[in-house]
Computed example of a mutant assay.
Amino acid sequence: MKQNLGTEEAIKRWDTFADTYSKNHTEQGDLHKEVFLNPTLFSLMGNIKNKKVLDAGCGEGYLSRIFYKSGAIVTAVDYSPRMIEITKERTPNDLLIDYRQGNCEDLNTLEDNSFDLIVSNMVIQDLANYDKAFQEMYRLLVDGGSFIFSILHPCFITPKSGWEKTESGEKLHWNVDNYFYEGVYEQPALGDKEKMLFFHRTLTSYVNTLINTGFTIESIVEPKPSKEMLKKYPSFEEDFRCADFMVFKLKK
């Protein structure tokens, strides 16, 4: 674990990883997004027709495209220049989405009180200065606006966490370690030689930082696979053993 690595290094690594990452995404995202995150995000968002929506950390843009097709007025940012190139390539010309390269820690090109809804899907753990990102989201929302974000579950996805297995590969239980360590750690990315950076915080730090920013917590969800998804992808039965993700819905 290397505390001297920050967001700038994370951006460089995401630029390197962007093409590999995007190849694993369909118009519903990757498998984990399809099974866990999309159903939760959509249920928390409700009807977004005619709403001004910011996709904060859009990746290859699948959510931005879904938002636009749902009738929203969509702006999307990502801190990886290569990722923005990919999402523009993947977006048909008739989808009028305003894509911009920008770090969620400082979105000074966007005006105060510009959005009814901000969604940040699996992004906050990629930022060294998450407190600044929360402040930016608060600044950009209209009064009464909503901020929904998903993250790796901070209680279970920690530095050195992972399955304890038998010699034959049977999964015995999920190990958690270094929970109270707060800072950066490296994680292999889909077999790539390059390792990605994650920034771990405790649940206490997340909740207190959100409250101190001014947000009201409306809902917290730990997504589980639905019966329909289990029929389609039976291997996700193991995800009832511990939670992989956490989703927050907040109000300004």
Rank of each mutant, 00 (worst) to 15 (best):
L152A: 15
W163I: 06
C104S: 13
L95K: 01
P81R: 03
K69H: 14
V119T: 07
Y130K: 12
G162I: 01
L140G: 00
N108A: 04
F147D: 03
K165I: 15
I118D: 12
L127Q: 07
V123A: 06
M122S: 15
M83I: 13
L95D: 08
N113V: 07
S114Q: 10
V184H: 05
A128I: 14
S120V: 05
K165N: 13
P154V: 03
Q101P: 04
K160Q: 12
N103V: 10
V142T: 13
R139H: 10
A72V: 08
T75H: 06
D94M: 12
L117T: 14
Y181D: 01
K132D: 15
Y185L: 03
K88M: 09
K160V: 07
F115E: 06
Y181V: 03
Y185M: 06
E167G: 15
L117M: 11
I97D: 00
N175I: 04
E136Y: 09
E167H: 14
G162L: 09
R100H: 11
S70E: 12
Y79W: 11
L140I: 01
V74P: 01
F149A: 00
G183V: 01
L96I: 12
S150K: 02
K160E: 13
N93Y: 08
Y130E: 04
N178L: 00
N178C: 03
D116R: 12
Y185H: 02
S146T: 14
N103L: 04
R100A: 09
L127R: 04
F180I: 10
T87P: 01
S80G: 08
E182T: 07
S120C: 02
G169A: 04
S114P: 11
G169T: 05
Y99W: 00
D106Y: 15
I124Q: 04
S114A: 04
K171P: 11
G144P: 06
H173G: 12
T87G: 06
N178Q: 01
A128G: 08
H153M: 00
S70C: 13
K88E: 08
N178D: 09
N175E: 14
M137W: 14
I86F: 05
G169W: 05
Y138E: 13
C155H: 12
M83A: 10
M122A: 15
L107I: 03
V123E: 01
T91V: 02
G162E: 00
K160T: 09
S161A: 09
I157H: 01
F180S: 08
I151M: 07
I84N: 06
K165C: 15
L96C: 08
N113R: 13
I84D: 08
K88D: 05
V123K: 00
D106V: 13
Q101G: 11
D143L: 14
T91E: 02
I118L: 10
S161L: 03
R82T: 14
T91L: 01
